[in-house]
Computed example of a mutant assay.
Amino acid sequence: MTTGATPPLAPKRSRARTFLPLGIAVWLVLEIWLLTVVANATGALTVLALLVGGAVLGATVMKRAGRRAFQNLTTTFQQAQAAAQTGEVPSAAGKTGAEDRNGFLMLGGLLLMIPGLVSDAAGLLLLIPQVRSFLGRYAEKAVERRMTAAPPGSLQDAFQQARMRRPDGKVVQGEVVREDANQGPRRPDEPRPPLMP
Rank of each mutant, 00 (worst) to 15 (best):
T2W: 08
A5D: 14
P7K: 07
P8C: 08
L9P: 09
A16D: 13
R17H: 11
T18E: 12
T18L: 10
F19A: 12
P21G: 05
P21H: 03
L22W: 11
G23E: 08
A25Q: 00
A25T: 09
A25R: 02
A25K: 03
L28C: 07
L28P: 00
L30P: 02
E31A: 02
W33V: 10
L34I: 04
A44M: 07
A44S: 14
T46R: 04
V47I: 02
L51N: 01
L51C: 00
L51Y: 01
G54K: 01
A55Y: 00
V56E: 01
V56M: 00
L57C: 05
G58D: 01
A59M: 03
M62L: 07
A65I: 04
R68L: 06
A69W: 00
Q71H: 08
N72D: 10
T74E: 05
T74I: 03
T74P: 04
T76W: 03
T76C: 01
Q78I: 04
Q79D: 14
Q79W: 02
A80K: 02
Q81F: 12
A82C: 01
A82M: 09
T86L: 07
E88R: 01
E88T: 06
S91T: 12
A92N: 12
A92K: 07
A93Y: 02
K95I: 02
A98I: 06
L107N: 03
L107Q: 09
G108I: 03
L110P: 06
M113F: 03
P115R: 02
V118I: 11
D120C: 11
D120I: 07
A122D: 08
G123E: 08
L124K: 07
L124N: 09
L126Y: 08
L126R: 03
I128N: 15
Q130N: 13
V131F: 06
F134L: 15
F134Q: 13
G136S: 14
G136T: 06
R137W: 11
R137D: 14
Y138K: 14
E140V: 12
V143G: 13
V143F: 09
V143T: 14
R146T: 05
R146V: 08
M147H: 09
M147Q: 13
A149E: 15
P152E: 12
L155N: 12
F159A: 10
F159H: 09
Q160T: 14
Q160D: 11
Q161I: 04
M164H: 10
M164R: 11
D168T: 03
G169T: 05
V172N: 09
V172I: 11
E175Y: 08
R178Y: 15
R178L: 15
D180K: 08
A181L: 11
N182H: 09
N182Q: 09
N182I: 13
Q183G: 12
Q183H: 06
G184W: 04
R187Q: 12
P188I: 13
P191L: 10
P193R: 04
P193N: 11
P193M: 05
P194M: 06
M196W: 10
P197D: 15
